[in-house]
């Protein structure tokens, strides 16, 4: 049990929520998403994101379309689905209640 590992586990746990939030605002391609996550210090290596995106796509939370790129191979642009929106709402609610729960622990019982 080390602190570094624990922190990365916590971040990993909310990664789906974060990705949903990003693609809800606007359609993005994978490296857009990873850039934003990195900026927010939520992601260490890009590679973590790709299995996640495929899983979420297979679960029907997000979908993608291909777009040609001037430099390099065609890109997958991801957008949120109806199902993804409802999942996101549930996850956000869960997040809020989690922070509240943790806050509540500050007070003596």
């Amino acid at each position: 049990m080390n602190e570094e590992n624990f922190r990365s586990q916590m971040k990993k746990g909310i990664l789906e929520l974060c990705v949903l939030k990003i693609v809800q605002v606007q359609e993005c391609y994978a490296s857009n998403i990873s850039e934003r996550l990195k900026k927010a210090d939520l992601l260490v290596v890009e590679g973590t994101l790709y299995p996640l995106l495929t899983r979420m796509k297979n679960a029907g939370w997000i979908q993608y379309r291909w777009e040609e790129s001037k430099s390099g191979p065609p890109r997958k642009y991801y957008q949120i689905t109806e199902e993804g929106i409802s999942i996101l709402q549930k996850l956000e609610k869960e997040w809020d209640s989690l922070t509240q729960s943790i806050q509540s622990l500050n007070q003596p019982s």
Partner: peptide, 25 residues
């Protein structure tokens, strides 16, 4: 390492595409 996973082939080609993209940049 991705072979073990579900959809591993797809994830791998995404990653490979990203590698190519980074080289291009």
């Amino acid at each position: 390492s991705l072979q073990q996973q579900e959809g591993g082939q797809e994830i791998y080609s995404d990653l490979e595409a990203r590698v190519a993209e980074l080289f291009q940049e």
